[in-house]
C-alpha cells in the first residue's frame, strides 16, 4: 500500500503530516488555554476542572498518548524536512541573498519551534510532573487538601461535588509564577509560540490545499487575530501573577482545619 509510504516518505506527505499534527496541537493549545483561563475565577473552578480531567482515567491517557504521537510526528517531520532542504540548497551558499516577501514568522519557524519544545518540557516538568519547583507542586502535602465550596459542572453535569477534597491547582499556578524569571520565561515562550502559530496556522491551509488568492487575505487576518488572542490569553496568566493582580490567597480555615 502506497498510502503510508506517500505520507511518511514524500516531501508533500510529510508536510501534510506536519499540517495535520499541527492542527491537532493548535486545537489542544487553544482548549488548554480556555480551560486554564478559569484561574481568573474562584479557585473552585480551576481545581474542579483539574480534578475532572484527572478523573477521566483511560480517556485522559488516550488523549495524552495521542498528543505525544502528534508532537513526535510533528518534530520528526520538521527535522527530516529541514535536513533534506539543507542538503537540497547545496554546498555553496549565495554570496548575497535577499528575502523578497517571506514573513518574519516564517523565517524563524525552526528557532521558535525549538524554544517551544524547551518550554513544553519545562511546562510538563513544572505543572504535570512536579520535577522543577517541586515545593509548590500540587501533590505536596500543603496543596493536597482543597475542599470544594461549590459543585463543578461540565456541560450541565455535576462532575465534582461541593465538599470533595481535591488538589489545589489554583494555588500551585499562582505560587508557580511567583519567581520573576519563571513568569517572564512563560510570557516570552508563549510569545514565540504565537509567532510559530502565525506562520503555522496560515501554512497548514496551504499544505492541505485549502487556500487560494481569494481567501489568502481573510485567512491571514483570521490567523493574526487568533494568534494575538492566544498570546494575550496565555500571557495574561503569568502576567496577572507578575503584576499582583492574582495573588495566592492565605490558607483558608477549611483547609487548615483538615485533620
Amino acid at each position: 500500500m502506497n498510502l503510508v509510504g506517500n505520507l511518511f516518505g514524500s516531501s508533500i506527505g510529510r508536510k501534510i503530516l506536519m499540517a495535520v499534527t499541527g492542527l491537532i496541537l493548535i486545537g489542544f493549545v487553544i482548549g488548554h488555554l480556555v480551560g486554564n483561563l478559569q484561574v481568573f475565577s474562584h479557585p473552585d473552578k480551576l481545581n474542579g476542572y483539574a480534578h475532572f480531567l484527572r478523573s477521566l482515567g483511560p480517556a485522559l491517557w488516550i488523549a495524552r498518548i495521542g498528543l505525544l504521537v502528534a508532537v513526535v510526528i510533528h518534530i520528526w517531520a520538521a527535522t527530516v524536512l529541514t535536513l533534506e532542504s539543507k542538503r537540497a540548497r547545496g554546498g555553496e551558499p549565495y554570496g548575497v541573498k535577499t528575502w523578497i516577501q517571506a514573513t518574519l514568522s516564517s523565517r524563524y519557524m525552526r528557532w521558535t519551534g525549538v524554544v517551544v519544545l524547551a518550554f513544553l518540557l519545562y511546562h510538563l516538568a513544572h505543572f504535570t510532573l512536579g520535577v522543577v519547583q517541586s515545593d509548590t507542586f500540587k501533590e505536596t502535602e500543603a496543596l493536597r487538601h482543597y475542599k470544594m465550596t461549590a459543585d463543578y459542572h461540565v456541560l450541565g453535569f455535576t462532575v465534582v461535588r461541593a465538599g470533595s477534597e481535591v488538589l489545589d491547582v489554583h494555588r500551585m499556578v499562582l505560587l508557580g509564577f511567583q519567581p520573576l524569571v519563571v513568569a517572564i520565561f512563560y510570557i516570552i515562550a508563549v510569545g514565540l509560540l504565537s509567532l510559530h502559530l502565525l506562520h503555522g496556522m496560515d501554512s497548514l491551509f496551504q499544505t492541505l490545499g485549502w487556500r487560494n488568492a481569494r481567501w489568502a487575505r481573510s485567512l491571514r487576518t483570521f490567523v493574526m487575530l487568533a494568534c494575538a488572542a492566544y498570546f494575550i490569553g496565555s500571557a495574561a496568566i503569568p502576567g496577572a501573577v507578575l503584576t499582583g493582580l492574582l495573588k495566592p490567597v492565605p490558607v483558608t480555615p477549611s483547609v487548615a482545619a483538615h485533620p
Binding site: 514524500s10 516531501s11 508533500i12 533534506e84 532542504s85 537540497a88 516564517s106 496551504q206
Partner: peptide, 14 residues
Amino acid sequence: MDTLGFGSCTNQYE
C-alpha cells in the same frame, strides 16, 4: 522531484 534532491515547501512564497 523528491528523488532528484529538491527541498520541500515551507510556504514562504519567495
